[in-house]
């Protein structure tokens, strides 16, 4: 036990600042506050591997390491689509995963945001379209944002998720204004 506590103390806090999107955009730390204000809880993501090579999964797992500390940014991965606000899909959609992906999409309550991660999710990648691959995620379900890369680095994925949330929020407040007027 002493070893564990001692190593924790020696390691310290490694979490880095959230990645910058662009020099002129507001710091992403404010997004974190927005998430809390709007949802009153963490942003919940359900991930589905629709046929990936496992490269993107490794980088998604890295988001939970102490450097990126995803949960510290107010975002968590959840086990059930019923609990999710965001569906994050990796891989080209294999024919064998088409139905499971559609069902998961259907099980997420509205409004939902869909993010396709990786070159395969974006365009089918090197696998393309074939008897076994449907190609990009957008060929199967509606997609709001794409985070390209093979695999995309965790910082890019994190920025992409936050970006998608910001723009979904922007669209939602526009709708609210339109309703009010």
């Amino acid at each position: 036990m002493f070893d564990v506590i001692s190593l924790m103390l020696r390691t310290g806090i490694l979490t880095e600042r959230l990645p910058a999107r662009s020099p002129e955009s507001p710091p992403l730390e404010s997004v974190q506050e927005d998430i809390r204000r709007i949802l009153g809880r963490a942003l919940c993501i359900r991930h589905v591997d629709a046929g990936s090579c496992n490269g993107c999964e490794l980088e998604l797992q890295a988001l939970n390491n102490p450097y990126y500390n995803l949960e510290g940014a107010g975002i968590k991965f959840v086990a059930s689509p019923r609990h999710a606000d965001v569906l994050l899909v990796t891989g080209p959609v294999s024919a064998n995963m088409e139905e499971a992906l559609k069902r998961t999409y259907g099980a997420i309550p509205d409004p939902k945001v869909v993010i396709a991660v990786g070159d395969c999710g974006a365009c089918g990648g090197i696998f393309g379209k074939s008897y076994a691959s449907r190609g990009s995620v957008a060929d199967v379900i509606p997609v709001h944002r794409v985070i390209p890369g093979c695999p995309p680095e965790p910082a890019k994925i994190l920025a992409g998720i936050l970006d998608a949330v910001v723009s979904a929020q922007g669209q939602a407040s526009k709708r609210d204004k339109a309703k009010r007027s």
Partner: peptide, 24 residues
């Protein structure tokens, strides 16, 4: 479930491109 038709895909690549598919 993740069958992507890799073997068939190889056949439409050149010898100099195959390593990229193998890596994935």
């Amino acid at each position: 479930y993740t069958h992507k038709g890799v073997a068939k895909r190889f056949e439409s690549l050149s010898q100099q491109e195959g390593h990229r598919l193998a890596a994935r």
